[in-house]
Amino acid sequence: MADSTTSTGSPGSRLLGLTTLVGLAGLLLFAFVFTEPDVRLHPTTGEEFGQFDAVRLLYLHVPMAVLTYVAFLTCAVASAGYLLKRGAWWDVTAHASAEVGTVCCGLVLVTGSIWGRPVWNTWWEWGDVRLMTTLVLFLLFTGYLALRRTPAEPQRQARRAAIVALVAVVDIPLVNRSVEWWENRTLHQQSTLAELKIEDLTLFTLMLGFVVFGLVFAWLMLHRFRVGWLEHAQAGHEVALAIAERHAEMETLDVDAAIGQTGGGK
């Protein structure tokens, strides 16, 4: 079998992987060494306060949240593409982006919870609109992935999954705008970048986080897409093999019958 069908790697993807690793190392340096913890001196009490080291989670949490949106929107666009064109490329893209997006969304929930304990004084607040809409988004796409694992005829499964993705993606504007629309129902702060309440090395490191995790995302998408495409090709190959076997059986039976007739005539 050719190398291209046994590996999802390519010279381009290896270069991307290497760049990503270098970027991750750089990001770790900036996040843990070059940037300072968030410590302020209170003007009235004179006490130190702030987020301290918990602020470093910002460099992972915020890029992951943005990549969650990117992944699920990609999934929705690819799902719409599948429903319109019925091509396997669209379906494999939708599946790959949903899987990567669910990982990102899970990391958003976990890092947010870890950050929330020291800063908010709680791991989780049931009823908080930002938290709940994000949890719902995670559950919807977990359901999407579960649906993709149910035994069904491939085209029917792809069609169902595409419809679920288009329903699930409606939650994204609710997640994103919840801090503006229901300000008094969430502990979550409003956008820092939109109001430019971040500067210097903290801003630079956050931007670096976007770039590096963007590369991680691209690498994961590339490989997951290739795995999906190989699975698709494998399924097609197995169907072709089964048909060929069936034809071979029929031909053998025809030959046996012909031999039987010839033998009977002797």
Binding site: Q51, N121, Q189, T202
Partner: peptide, 17 residues
């Protein structure tokens, strides 16, 4: 039950209370 509603200001000592 007390939770802190942290603001969105990451400007260190320039952050406004």
């Amino acid at each position: 039950h007390m939770v802190v509603k942290h603001d969105n200001d990451y400007r260190g000592d320039d952050a406004e209370l």
